[in-house]
Amino acid sequence: MAAHAKAGRPSGFNRIGAGEKALRYALLLLVLALTVSPFLWQLSTSLKSLDEDIYSRTPSFLPEHPTLANYAEVARTIPVWSYAVNSLVVAVIVVAGNAVGATVAGYALAKLRFRGAKLLLGLFLATLVLPGEVTIVSQYVTVRGLGLADTLLGVALPGAIGMLNVLLMRTAFQAIPPEMDEAAVIDGATVWQRLLHIGLPNVRGMLSVITIFAFIGAWDDFLWPLIVLTDPANYTLTVGLQYLNGTFIANPRLIAAGTMISFVPIVIVFAALQRFFFRGVEEGAIKG
């Protein structure tokens, strides 16, 4: 893919006719409707009052009398806010762990020479072949052995330094020209100073991509917390929502309110940071 040379772009070819433009926007709006409408439908359901017939064959898209009562009711049914806090605790540990752990390791692997570096790199790479689900049972045995079964730390710890993130940070640090480091070495800068003042400012794009993904991954994760957590008081939001779904299937309004509590924060985080995300993508962070 990278083998193709970037070609010059004559401006004339970029102009498109009005007809094509209209067609493109029509298609964009069609896909937008398909993408966004299920979320809006759920939002609308979460705001519909008990008097409104949500099972009608011609339900109205907008709530007749919008109410936040379902959000209060879902909080009475399950401790949804403390589930949100639990999810946040896990996400913060995972983000912090990756931001620090993957960054320093990526820097050492990219910029420092030491015995065993090649072997270590090979092992990091080898883990990528293994889908996480393959080791999830013995992962649980390990976490239980550490005395962390049914704890949030047990949920957060295994993902706190992602092997893929180490490799991505290494790639980002490698793109920094060696001359910059050499100049700093001559000036007597230590490894730590070089990492902080030369390394970090040049890998901000990749760092934001891995932290955004670490947050989203931890917040959205379901299988692993489902295995680690037993006590409903410790549930994260995703596990708590499935629990709600299993217990109180009768009222879709409550499940809708619960899903919105899980969905809205992640959309806000993503919308706020999408600039960094798409820039990071252009730098080639996402190839799988």
């Binding site: 299920p38 979320f39 439908w41 759920q42 359901t45 989203i216 917040w219 959205d220 994760d221 379901f222 995703t238 929502l241 499935q242 779904n245 879709p252 499940i255 809708a256 619960g258 899903t259 899980s262 969905f263 992640i266 959309v267 993503f270």
Partner: peptide, 14 residues
């Protein structure tokens, strides 16, 4: 970016 759980609950209702 939405959790698979959220997506499945939304589609479960649809």
């Amino acid at each position: 970016v939405a959790s698979a759980v959220v997506v499945a609950l939304i589609w479960g209702w649809v």
